[in-house]
Nucleic acid binder design. Sequence first.
DNA 1: GATTAGCAATCTATAATATGGAGTGCTAAT
DNA 2: ATTAGCACTCCATATTATAGATTGCTAATC
Lengths: 350, 350
Amino acid sequence: MINLELDSRKKRILQAIVNEYIDTIEPVSSGSLIGKYGLDCSSATVRNEMAELEREGFLEKTHTSSGRIPSSKGYRFYVDKLLNEKNLTLNEVRYINSKLQSKINEMEELTKIATNTISEVTHYTTVAIEPNAKKQKISEIKFVLIGSRMLMAIILTEAGIIKETIIKFDRDINQEQVDTLNVIFNNKLKGQYLSLIDLPIEQYIMSEMSYRVELIKPIINQITKLINDESNLYLKGANRALDNPEFKTGDLAKRFLGLLDRRDFIEDILDNDEDFNVYIGNEENGLKDLSIVTFKNIVAGKDLGTIGIIGPTRMDYSKVISVLKYINKELNKDINRSLGDGKEGNNSGG
Amino acid sequence: MINLELDSRKKRILQAIVNEYIDTIEPVSSGSLIGKYGLDCSSATVRNEMAELEREGFLEKTHTSSGRIPSSKGYRFYVDKLLNEKNLTLNEVRYINSKLQSKINEMEELTKIATNTISEVTHYTTVAIEPNAKKQKISEIKFVLIGSRMLMAIILTEAGIIKETIIKFDRDINQEQVDTLNVIFNNKLKGQYLSLIDLPIEQYIMSEMSYRVELIKPIINQITKLINDESNLYLKGANRALDNPEFKTGDLAKRFLGLLDRRDFIEDILDNDEDFNVYIGNEENGLKDLSIVTFKNIVAGKDLGTIGIIGPTRMDYSKVISVLKYINKELNKDINRSLGDGKEGNNSGG
DNA sequence: GATTAGCAATCTATAATATGGAGTGCTAAT
DNA sequence: ATTAGCACTCCATATTATAGATTGCTAATC
């Protein structure tokens, strides 16, 4: 989608400019590059190349005689083609390892800890959403009587995600009825996608489970609600963003925080099928100067959800990506530690 | 704690200054008050009074010849003694009512909706925490087998709060054992405070429930963890704060967002025994220029937790308080709607 | 043909200076 | 006790000047 035919010197110059700009947050001049980035040509040559890169849309100027800053297209190319992974410092590695030591009982916690750690190491705001519920397969449904008119429905998915919700009834129900419900629902739904329990399918389920509509109906309603509800969104380090100088003006800060409040939007971005993605905001989508790195956190073959790092477009992508990969690698190293018995649990009915 | 002996004119002047400052966000001059607030004296007199109010610590100047702004002490006095409730506009009332219409199944949702609505109507950031778990009495504990090595513990409190957690075991457990656990735990703990299941008491419980330590131990551990865990904190409208001009500088914005990330601190403030409280930040506690209004949301006699509205000290307290009271009144109006059957449910064992 | 030195032109960022006006505190009159 | 009057203080804003960074272009060089 982007012109890949930049000659090697242009690439090196573009890369140098993006790196330098990420570092200094100031328009990059031709002169500042020659020594620092080992380009074997003069500033005049660099100037010519920069002018051309600008004509091609990779660079921008803040005013006629300023240095250059990367455009969205420039960042895009940089992220897609020029990114080098960074080595983490010893301190960072130590810190991450210490965080990942904690005993973890539920997968939700694993995501929480990963999210916190990423935010702390990268100094960017980090969000996590669990895998899209509708794409999950039901491993088991369990109804539990709580009081005489309340039921808790517990849904276990094959990925080990546990969801529960409360269902209230207008009249008393007894244990025998609950047992029946357990049998009916499990027979029908075990192995099915959660999305099956959705409004259009309601009729189908109702007719298949013709047992006591006045019991089934509120259950379907509530479970439908549970599934369609905004999935859990975990957020850490909203204030860290403000460490970045570009948020000083207030305008960008406001847009940034507005973004954090728009769950639907974040979910849309995070809920893609890529294992790894960099979303670079631009004028059109109203996210100019903001970027989101998304990363599908798969541990022991299980999709634990997607993690997103949100920050200024002038973001240290190398570091972010290195941290993400390192953490994911560590999580997968000692699989049994966190997820060992989850697996057995899933497949054996109660 | 504060000098209550301000004469009536001084009070009126202080009140006028705070109101005017909340409105305009600009130092208030003596001249601007006389017409607008119906004071039957000249600006010179007001000036004299203002000078005295400053000497007494209620007002401050930004520079030698500027108007006055309220000090922390001034706000304190204003909030404690001078606050008039504001009438909500018809639109606000309509909006609130429409929000509160939604069918509510769990108390958690009620809090969520109230929090969202408050944030939307007041334009301030709003947080909610559920009642301190340790002060809750256990109404019922239920263990449910999920898979062969996993148990879900469901704790119902008398206030109707439902908490659940997952417990994993190293070896298989069967339904018979679960039944026994249900009996033992309910016998011992029904009616007790949740805080009983805490580390110091662990020994006691273990000895009382001498049945199969290898089963009991992980349960106690996990439930202890659940109880001691940070209670649920629900936050809405973090970006709204940035609408306030005082956040433009960035410094205050950063402190504000930092505050939102410090759950422990927010919890400390919200978890007081007052039904209603205004916390005015100052130099000492690092929250200068920030205030939190806390409000214990009690509906149908049940404590649903505490709601906090966080904003600049120059906050429209009248409006905030009016909105809080109105919403609480509406929630209590039609008790049955949201909480009717919760009560019956609690007391009847499964 | 590609590269580069040299240089005028452009624009920014900063400081220095001046000006108008808002608001106070004080004094003296009421 | 209150108030008119006024000098004084300080801020906010505009104006101007200055120094410096960086570019684009041209002409020379490799």
